[in-house]
Structure formats: structure tokens, C-alpha cells
Design a protein around this nucleic acid. Structure first.
Length: 568
RNA sequence: CGGGGUAUAGCGCAGCCUGGUAGCGCAACUGCUUUGGGAGCAGUGGGUCGGGAGUUCGAAUCUCUCUACCCCGACCA
């Protein structure tokens, strides 16, 4: 590709509304442009990367025996009503109606559609198992689209769905997909980790997420420092301590704590550790408010808490007016002593003695509080997030926590959809058996951003070779002044193309600095520079995007040299 | 949806408080010079100051209102 015939729309300045590095660089490199919140146009440069990733995903899925299909983005409401998700899904589902006032949605996922297809196409156990996938545009009306294409409303996803007669069969396809995902992310050159996950609104039992490790990731993942355990923090259980609670030594005392609302303020004010305080959060329960009590240095895990039968799912925090009406104080002064509503206490908080808590009166806290003396024996639950240093739930090592970007998710769905939608086959005895399902997603467009998050420096993007928009940049210095140089550059350009190398030939009448800066910003892995002065000695210059220094190579070996580089 | 903020040329911003001819840098275009790390000089084009209403002789500026976008929280590939 000649730059003069390409759209190279690079920006010097960082767009003001781009927060994270991948978003900034994608805008600066001219890969994407925003149309509206969460909606982006892919420019030619960005699309080249997207397509390369897509093709790697497609290639590995095909190798795993999955069959590609393409389903409509617009889906009739009837199928969603049949599965029950028309009511369940909420405002994230973009609902539309056609000219006949018939209801549709823009598909956020395709379980209903594939299940509908399969129940009509597959009749016999002899046809199973099957695994169908597509690479297609999804729409989810996110409450808050963010970080460019990282969390867009419209995005490109690979979604696959498998159908089975037995759980064993599902397990083996699930395992195959696990391996396939590892192959895909390895080929993309990503540092990633597979973790156990909550299955969320898709439903089903077993599920694992694949996270690209990056500080800007929106998820926290916990992993054992010595063992194999790794899971999304959302669902990591906290092993209950074996330590006995210390005996009470202090007397319960009311202290004045004017304007101390947060644990941080309180612990500084009273000069005590946050771990000696408890915090009390009020949430909606099945019948009125429920109090959740945690140690001051711990945070609530809303996923785990929402699974408690006493608590509404998802978690809804009490409104300040509701709290005022129920216990006559403000949020910063609530405590478990004397509460008339159900109290659920995290194991760690229940193990405290002589602790500090709100007095249920503004401007006052209680010190020296003890369970089973000043207030009843607590109902103990596991509702806190794990912390670095907590023991690993599998008993092997202690936990570390890292940030991750979720780029893939595999589920064992079971019969949730096939049952609701009556997708069954005849078994060998001629009996109807409901098929068992799995589903497997990859955020293809998100992978573009995730890769940049892991591969960049102060000059721009550093693409892994497998997904770079161009493999080689060819930069002639002052070509407009030398006919001889033009001939040699054109010759090299033609030869690189002849051996199928994606080369970007900068034939603009630009100064060298501009060419270097652009090639580095857009992250081309290999750079060839040719100038008049090299022609006399029959040499040109090569530099890898990550190399400190350039090296000189003979002109007549350049094709071999590059081909050799690409092999490594 | 709650909390916070922004809206002025393609991008980044000033001007607003204290009403009076709409500006700067980058980008774009033309010419000359320059040419191994985002060049210099001279010139040119480009604006319903987010929309609507109001106050005023006069509104980018003050008031009201609507909209869009961004950031912090719950959802998720």
C-alpha cells in the first residue's frame, strides 16, 4: 500500500475525551473515529487490524471443527419471549419495532436464534455434537459506554454455540474450546489468564473467563502465588478463619465523632486501624431493608451478596431517605447494635472483638463493642472481596490480585435455552431428549484495544506481527529529489509485494521525521529506510519497532533479510 | 439511573467573572526556502460560539430550558 493512496489520519494532539492509552492511540493513529457514545467507525488502518484478528479467530475455530454461520442482527421478540429473556434482560436490550408494529431487538447475543435454528435442523442424536459460530456485530445499550471500543455499545463478537446429547459430550467440546481460546490468544501475542467466573445473565453452570492482563482492566482477578487457582474476584470465596474470637476486654462506650462519616475519617479521628471498625451497609431485602456488616478494611462483593436469599438480586442500596426513616440517622453513622432489621455479618467482621461501629445516631460511634454481649450472635455469611494475601480457596498458596480485560468467556449452559425452547433430538431408543448446550464468546473488537494496552510505548503502538496493519514500512528519504532513489524504492516495494509481505510504502513528499513518527505511532513492526547516501554503498537501513538501534543491510539481500525476520 | 463536569473552526484551547467588531496553537490550502526525527517565512480558507426561549439598545458572555458528550458508581465480550 502506498501512503499517498491510503488514509493515514494521524493526530499530534491527544483527544481530550480519551482516558486510556489504547483509546488515545487508536484515535491518534487514525484507526477509529467516534460517531456517538459507544459507536465508532473503523477507518482503513483500524479495520486491517480488526480483520487480522478476526481471521485468526476464524482459523482456530475452524480447526476446532466449529462451523461458521451468520445470523441476523435483528431478532424477533417472540423468541426472546419464549426463552423468558424479553422480560429479564432490561434496558440494555435495544428494542425496536417495524412498520407493522411488530417487536424486535438488536441482538446482544444469539442463544435464542441459534436454538431456534438447531431445533428445526437437528433431529437425531446421530447429528450431535455440533458447534456453530459467527463473527458478527452485537449491540448492547450499556449504561455507560467507555474507553473507546473497549466498552462500546456496538461491537464485533465471535459467538459460538454447541449442542450435545450428554454432559460428557458438552464437557469435551468445552475443553476443546478452552484449548482453542488459549491457541487464539497465544497467536495474538497476548499475556492473558483463564479464570473461573460468575456466569451472569447468560445463565448456566460452569464458566471461565479469559482476561488480558492490563492495569487499565475493569475486572480484578485473583490468583494463587504458588498454585493454579485463578478466578474473577467477583466469585472468589473467602475461607473462614479458624482463629477463635478474642475475648471481650473493653466496655461498650459511646464516643462523639462529629462529622466523621467514612471509615477512613473515623479511623484517623480515633487513631485506630480500619480493621478494628465495622461498616454497615443497608440494602433492599425481600421484605424491607437488610443490614450487611463488614470489617472496615474490607469491601462488599455485590455478586456474592446478591446470592443470599435474604437480599434482593441484583443488590440495591438503600436510599438515604429510607435509612433516615428506618433508623433515624445518616449513612456514616449506622451500626449493628440495636438494629431492628435483619443483620448479616461477614465472617471476618463476626470474628472481631472490642470493635468500633456507628451508634445509629448522627455524630456518635460506639467503641468496645462485642458480639454475644452487646448485640446478638451474628448470622455469619461470606460477602467480602478477597484481598491480596488471603489464602487461596484451593488451599494452595496465597492470593495475588491483578487487573484484567475480559476478552473471552466460555459457558456450560446446560438446558436453560433448549428446555425453554423445546430443542430436542431423538435418542437411539426413539425418545425425545433435550439437548445440552455450551456457548463461547470472544470480544473481537475489544481485542484490538486490549492488545494496544499491552503493547505500546511513548512513541505509539507496538503491534505483534500477527495483527499489525502492515508488517513492513518502507521509508525513502527525500525521494522527490532523486530519480535514482525512486527507482530503487519502487523496486523494493514491488519485490516485497511479490512475496506477499504487507508493506506500507511512504511515497509522500514528507520530511523524514514525519515518516518516522507516523510509522512508529501506527506501530509497524519492521522499518526499512532507504536514502540517497545508501545507494552509493549499496546499503539500506533496518530497524525493528522495539530495537534500540538500526542496522545496515546490503540492498540486494533485503527481501531475504525481511523474510527471515518474519519467520522469528 | 444517581453524583460531578464540559459544549467556541477538523483537533487542543483562550475569551465569559465585569455584555460592545470571535481569537490562539495544531491541522488544511498556496508560494518560496528547507530536507535523516512531527521544519521556517509569507499568505489563504474555514464559525448558526450545542439548540430554543428570555433580559438588554446590544448576548459567546447574564437568566431559564432542552440536548449531546465526558468522568465516578451497578452491567458485560
Amino acid at each position: 500500500m502506498r501512503v499517498s493512496q491510503f488514509l493515514l489520519s494521524t493526530l499530534k494532539e491527544v483527544p481530550a475525551d480519551a482516558e486510556i492509552i489504547s483509546h488515545q492511540l487508536m484515535l491518534r493513529a487514525g484507526m477509529i473515529r467516534k460517531l456517538a457514545a459507544g459507536l465508532y467507525t473503523w477507518l482503513p488502518l483500524g479495520l486491517r487490524v480488526l480483520r487480522k484478528i478476526e481471521n485468526i479467530v476464524r482459523d482456530e475455530m475452524n480447526k476446532a471443527g466449529a462451523l461458521e454461520v451468520l445470523m441476523p442482527a435483528v431478532q424477533p421478540a417472540e423468541l426472546w419471549q419464549e426463552s423468558g429473556r424479553w422480560e429479564q434482560y432490561g434496558p440494555e436490550l435495544l428494542r425496536i419495532s417495524d412498520r407493522h408494529n411488530r417487536e424486535f431487538c438488536f441482538g446482544p447475543t444469539h442463544e435464542e436464534i441459534i436454538t431456534n435454528l438447531i431445533r428445526h435442523e437437528i433431529r437425531s442424536y446421530k447429528q450431535l455434537p455440533v458447534n456453530f459460530y459467527q463473527i458478527q456485530t452485537k449491540f448492547r445499550d450499556e449504561i455507560r459506554p467507555r474507553f473507546g471500543i473497549m466498552r462500546a455499545r456496538e461491537f464485533l463478537m465471535k459467538d459460538a454455540y454447541s449442542f450435545h446429547l450428554t454432559q460428557d459430550s458438552l464437557q469435551s467440546t468445552y475443553d476443546l474450546m478452552y484449548t482453542t481460546y488459549n491457541n487464539i490468544f497465544n497467536r495474538l501475542g497476548l499475556k492473558f489468564r483463564a479464570v473461573m467466573a460468575d456466569s451472569g445473565s447468560i445463565g448456566g453452570s460452569r464458566s471461565q473467563e479469559f482476561h488480558v492482563l492490563a492495569d487499565s482492566g475493569e475486572d480484578a482477578i485473583a490468583y494463587s502465588d504458588t498454585g493454579d487457582y485463578a478466578a474473577n474476584v467477583e466469585m472468589v470465596p473467602v475461607l473462614s478463619s479458624t482463629e477463635q474470637r478474642q475475648p471481650a476486654t473493653a466496655k461498650m462506650t459511646v464516643v462523639n465523632t462529629p462529622d466523621q462519616h467514612t471509615i477512613e475519617e473515623l479511623s484517623q479521628f480515633l487513631q485506630i486501624e480500619p480493621a478494628k471498625c465495622v461498616k454497615t451497609l443497608l440494602v433492599q431485602g425481600e421484605t424491607g431493608l437488610v443490614a450487611l456488616v463488614l470489617r472496615g478494611d474490607h469491601t462488599l462483593n455485590v455478586i456474592k451478596a446478591a446470592k443470599l436469599p435474604q437480599v434482593s438480586s441484583p443488590i440495591v442500596f438503600a436510599e438515604p431517605e429510607q435509612i433516615k426513616a428506618s433508623i433515624d440517622c445518616n449513612i456514616g453513622s449506622i451500626g449493628p447494635v440495636g438494629l431492628k432489621i435483619p443483620v448479616l455479618v461477614d465472617n471476618s467482621a463476626a470474628n472481631l472483638a472490642d470493635f468500633i461501629c456507628g451508634a445509629n445516631k448522627d455524630g456518635q460511634h460506639l467503641t468496645g463493642v462485642n458480639w454475644e454481649r452487646d448485640l446478638p450472635k451474628p448470622e455469619m455469611v461470606d460477602i467480602r472481596n478477597v484481598k491480596v494475601g488471603d489464602p487461596s480457596p484451593d488451599g494452595n498458596g496465597t492470593l495475588e490480585i491483578a487487573r484484567g480485560i475480559e476478552v473471552g468467556h466460555i459457558f456450560q449452559l446446560g438446558t436453560k435455552y433448549s428446555h425453554a425452547m423445546k430443542a430436542s433430538v431423538l435418542n437411539e431408543n426413539g425418545k425425545n431428549i433435550t439437548m445440552t448446550m455450551g456457548c463461547y464468546g470472544i470480544g473481537v473488537s475489544r481485542l484490538v484495544a486490549a492488545s494496544i494496552e499491552q503493547n505500546n510505548d511513548e512513541r505509539g503502538i507496538i503491534w505483534p506481527q500477527a495483527i499489525a496493519p502492515f508488517t513492513v514500512s518502507l521509508l525513502p528519504i527525500n525521494m522527490h529529489k532523486s530519480q535514482r532513489l525512486r527507482q530503487v524504492a519502487e523496486d523494493i516495494y514491488a519485490k516485497l509485494q511479490a512475496v506477499d509481505i504487507d508493506v506500507l510504502f511512504d511515497d509522500r513528499k514528507e520530511r523524514p521525521g514525519v515518516m518516522f513518527t507516523d510509522a512508529e505511532l501506527i506501530g509497524i513492526p519492521h522499518r526499512l529506510v532507504i536514502g540517497e547516501r545508501g545507494l552509493d554503498t549499496g546499503e539500506m537501513e533496518y530497524k525493528g519497532r522495539l530495537d534500540e538501534k538500526s542496522q545496515t543491510i546490503p540492498l540486494d539481500t533485503v527481501i531475504d533479510f525481511i523474510q527471515d525476520k518474519l519467520k522469528n
